[in-house]
C-alpha cells in the first residue's frame, strides 16, 4: 500500500554512480516523496473512517441479534421451543398462559399475502409503464406522485384502512368485522407500492438500450419488448424489489395494529380479525406487563421469530439475485 514512498526515497542512496549521487536526492524527488507520503497518510485515515462506518452496521446487527437472543433465553427456559412453534394458541397474558406463535405467524402471513397481491402487480405495472411506455413529461409527474405515497405516515394509512377501506369493503362483504386482515392487507399493499415500483423501475431502466433496440429492430412492439426482453433481463433486480416489499410487509406494524385487530387468531381467512407478530410486540410493550416476566420476554421471542423470517427472506433474495444475475 505505502510501497510507493519508500521506493522513491530509497532509490537514490543506492545510485552511487549517478552524477548527483552525493546529494542523496534531488529537490524534485524529495518533493514527490513528501507528496506521496502525505497522500498515503490521508488515504490511510480516510480508509479507516470508511471501515468504521461499514463495521458499525455489522456491529449493530450483531448487537441486535445478541439482544434478541439474550432476552428471549429466559422465555425459552419457561416455554418449550417445540410448544412455541406448534401450539395453536397465543395467550401469554391469561391465567393459564399458552405460548403458540402460530396464530401470530398466520396473522402476519395473511396480511402480507393480501398486501403482496396488491403491491406486486400494481407496482410492477407502474414500473413497466414508467420505464417503457410513459413519455418523458408524464413520467416526470407520475414518478414523484407515486413516491409521495411513501411519505404518508403509516399510522395515517392505518386509520385510512379503518375509516375508509373497511366501510367500503363492508358494502361488498356485509358481515365483515370492523377489524379484519383484508382491509389492513390492502392498505399495507398500497403503502408498499412505491417501494416496489421505484426499485422495479430502476431495475428495468438498468437494462441496456442495446437490448431494447435489438428487440424493436426485429419489429417488436413496446409490449412485446417489455415483456419478452426487458423484464426477463431485469429479473434479478425485480426479485430484489419484491423481496424488499415482502420484508416491508412482514415488518409493518401500525396499519395492522390499528386495522386488523389485536386478537391472536389462527386462521387463513383474510376476512377475520387477527394479530400479527409486530402488533403483538406493540401491544405488550405499551401495556403494563411487568418487566422480567415470561410475558415480557415473550416479545423478544416474537421479535426473534420475526428476525428469522425476514433474514430467511433476505438470504433467499440474495440467492435469487446471484442465481439470475445477467451479464449484459
Amino acid at each position: 500500500m505505502d510501497s510507493a514512498a519508500p521506493v522513491a526515497v530509497s532509490a537514490m542512496p543506492q545510485g552511487n554512480q549517478g552524477p548527483k549521487a552525493n546529494h542523496g536526492s534531488t529537490p524534485r524527488e524529495d518533493q514527490i516523496a513528501a507528496l506521496v507520503k502525505r497522500r498515503n497518510a490521508s488515504n490511510a485515515v480516510a480508509g479507516g473512517i470508511m471501515f468504521a462506518a461499514a463495521a458499525s452496521s455489522v456491529a449493530i446487527t450483531c448487537g441486535i441479534v445478541a439482544m434478541l437472543t439474550l432476552e428471549s433465553l429466559p422465555f425459552f427456559r419457561e416455554v418449550n421451543l417445540w410448544d412455541f412453534l406448534t401450539d395453536t394458541m397465543w395467550a401469554p397474558l391469561f391465567a393459564a398462559p399458552r405460548y403458540g406463535i402460530l396464530p401470530l405467524i398466520a396473522g402476519t402471513f395473511v396480511t402480507t399475502l393480501v398486501a403482496l397481491a396488491i403491491a406486486l402487480p400494481i407496482g410492477t405495472i407502474i414500473a413497466v409503464y414508467l420505464s417503457e411506455f410513459a413519455p418523458h413529461t408524464v413520467r416526470e409527474v407520475i414518478k414523484p406522485a407515486t413516491e409521495l405515497l411513501s411519505a404518508v405516515p403509516t399510522i395515517v394509512f392505518g386509520y385510512f384502512a379503518l375509516q375508509v377501506v373497511t366501510p367500503a369493503l363492508q358494502t361488498f362483504i356485509p358481515d365483515l368485522p370492523t377489524f379484519n386482515m383484508l382491509s389492513a392487507g390492502i392498505v399495507m399493499g398500497i403503502m408498499i407500492i412505491p417501494y416496489v415500483s421505484s426499485l422495479s423501475e430502476d431495475a428495468l431502466r438498468a437494462v441496456p438500450m442495446l437490448l431494447r433496440e435489438g428487440s424493436y429492430g426485429m419489429g417488436a412492439s413496446r409490449m412485446q419488448t417489455a415483456f419478452k426482453v426487458v423484464i426477463p433481463s431485469a429479473i434479478s433486480g425485480l426479485a430484489a424489489a419484491y423481496i424488499l416489499g415482502i420484508s416491508r410487509a412482514i415488518g409493518e406494524t401500525m396499519i395492522v395494529a390499528v386495522a386488523a385487530g389485536m386478537q391472536p387468531n389462527l386462521t387463513l381467512d383474510p376476512r377475520q380479525p387477527a394479530e400479527t407478530i409486530t402488533a403483538y410486540i406493540v401491544q405488550v410493550s405499551l401495556g403494563d406487563v411487568e418487566h422480567g416476566t415470561v410475558a415480557f420476554h415473550s416479545i423478544f421471542a416474537a421479535g426473534a421469530t420475526l428476525f428469522v423470517l425476514t433474514l430467511g427472506l433476505n438470504v433467499f433474495g440474495h440467492y435469487l439475485r446471484k442465481r439470475y444475475r445477467k451479464a449484459y
Partner: peptide, 16 residues
C-alpha cells in the same frame, strides 16, 4: 423493421 434486419455494434442476444 420486420422487413429490414439489423445487427448491432455489440452482440445483443436476448435473455433466452
Amino acid at each position: 423493421r420486420m422487413r429490414i434486419g439489423m445487427v448491432f455494434q455489440k452482440p445483443n442476444p436476448f435473455p433466452k
